[in-house]
Amino acid sequence: MDAQPDAPVDTKAAYLKDLLGAGLLIDTGVPGVYGRSGVFEDVITRFEATVTAAGEGQAEVMRFPPGMNRAHFARSGYMKSFPQLAGAVHSFCGDSHAHNDLLQAIEGGQDWTGGLTGTDVVLTPATCYPLYPAVAARGVLPSDGGLYDLQSYCFRHEPSNDPARMQLFRQREYVRIGSPDQVLEFRQLWLQRGQALINRVGLPYQLEIASDPFFGRGGKLMAMAQREQQLKFELLVPITSVEQPTACLSFNYHQDHFGQTWGIATDDGSVAHTACVGFGLERIALALFKHHGLDVKAWPASVREALWG
C-alpha cells in the first residue's frame, strides 16, 4: 500500500516475536507468510462485519480466488509499474525424464524450479484486479454506474520481518465504477467512513497523500505525478514504528486507467473512471493487537462493543 522505507529492524522483529509467541501468527519459515490463529481470524471477521455494515448493503458482492487470469494481469499494466512485486504460478508440465531431473534436483538440494512452466494463473496483486475485466465483459454500465464489494488474499513479493508487511495478506475493497463525479463522491464518502470505523475501534491515525511503490528510477517520476494529482490517500496507523506508521486503509482514484485498459463505458458512452477503498485486514488486526494488547478479552469495552456488539 505504501512506499515508505522500513522502520528500524528491532521493533518489527520484536513485535513479530510477540505475535508468534502468543500464537496469534504461526511461523512457516518464510518471512511474510504466516498461519493465523482462530483469535486472529475472529478479529478480522468482526472488523470486516463493521466494514460490511458501513457499506449499507448497496454494493454487489463478488469474491475472486487469490489467483487470476495471467492475460488479464498482463493487460492491466501491473508489470509496467510493479514488476518487483509480482508472483506467477508455475507448474510441472514435463515427461518422465524431466520428472526424474526434477526429483534429482530436489534430492541434491538444487534449484528445482527451472523445469517448471508458467501457467495461465498469476497471484492476485490487489483485490480489485480481477473485477475490471469481469465488469467490462458485461457491456455498458447502468446509468448509476457500478459499486462492488470484494475481498481476496493478495500476493506481493517483498519478504520482510515486519509483521505488517506480509507477502500473502487480505484486502477488503469497495470499488466504484462510473463518471468522474460518481467515483470522486464515493472516495470522499469512504474517506469519512474509513476514519469513523478506525475511530470506533480506538486506533490513532493520520491521513496523508500517498503514492504507490512504483518500480525503478521512472517510478519516482510516477510517484510524484500521483502525489501531485492527489490520486491516493492513506490512513496510517503506528504499528511497529511511530515515525513510520503503516498504511491500513487506502483511498485510490485511478482516473480512467482501468476504464481505458478494459474498454469500460458509462451509459453516455464515456470511458468509465474508477476508484477504490482498500482495507488491509491483517494490518488492521496487527494495529488492534498492538494498541489494545495481545489478549482480546482485555481490550477496552468500547472496542469490544464496536467489534463484538
Binding site: 528510477r217 521512472g218 517510478g219 505525478a225 500521483q226 486507467h257
Partner: peptide, 11 residues
C-alpha cells in the same frame, strides 16, 4: 501524456 508514458519518454 500519462505518467507511465513520461517514464518511457525519459528513458
Amino acid at each position: 501524456m500519462s505518467s507511465f508514458a513520461s517514464v518511457q519518454l525519459m528513458l
